[in-house]
Amino acid sequence: MAALVAGVETPTRSRLPRRHLVGGRLLNHCLLGLVGLVTLVAVLAPLLAPHDAVGTSGQLYAGIGSPGHPLGTDGIGRDLLSRTLLGLRTSWLMALAVVALGLLVGGIVGLLAGAFGGWLDAVLMRVTDLFLALPGTLVAVAVAAALGSGLGNTFLAISVVWWPYYARIVRGEVRALAVRPHVEAARMAGVSTPRIILRHLLPGVVPSAVVTASLDVGSVVLVLASLSFLGLGQSAPAPELGADTSRALPELLTHWWIPVIPGVTVMLLSLVANLGGDAVRDLIARRGR
């Protein structure tokens, strides 16, 4: 949904000086490298974490930089670095999964609607519009509350509201592609419909779908953190960035780092995702010229 902002802004991007820098391409690759690094950290988090994320040590309220606990410990002596790493793992991998699933479902819906047109198009797009017109995050809150706590349920709750925008984008692109000469030529030559969809329509849709999706990861990270903050994630001892902030709020004025560290981690994840999304857009735009 945040991609709507980005989509509208695309034309003005070319005026930014970054594109004219000699190192622009290098910068973009560095940003993508950063995304890869975060993904690697997320995957390897259980190995990287120095302590058990739910187990307690004797040291309560250790400050940042304490020996053995670089980010300190919380009120019952759990190591904050380990909790943050595992929370990051959940947030990041789930955000990627939500966007991937949204892209898959929205992509299929949009592809079918755009390629076949007619009543199928009308029905699929009306359903999509309905989903787009409902307040997504609120519906996700209700879905997560109805299903109860748990990782899978949160994932489902966000995925349910996250595909319609992709369906719109893909459908629009497919409609535009379907009237292009190469598709018409293929049709005249007697190529079967599935083959036209897979070989002639799908490849043309991929760039804009990928750009939209990559710009969305940051928003998903934020929505996930909000749901978790409201208590709609995994239940208590599991390390989760939003919930860890929310549970430590009463300690904000006395031990600020306990709620702030997971919150800042969410912010960094979303920042990396946004920069990575920008880089993907820039690289794809360059290749297109």
Binding site: L222, S226, T245, L249, L252, W256, P259, V260, G263, M267
Partner: peptide, 21 residues
Amino acid sequence: FVSSTAPTFLLGIFFLIVFYQ
């Protein structure tokens, strides 16, 4: 731009620390 990448609760916490505490 930077504050837009922050989750809402972090902004709230930040304002609390700066303008209240």
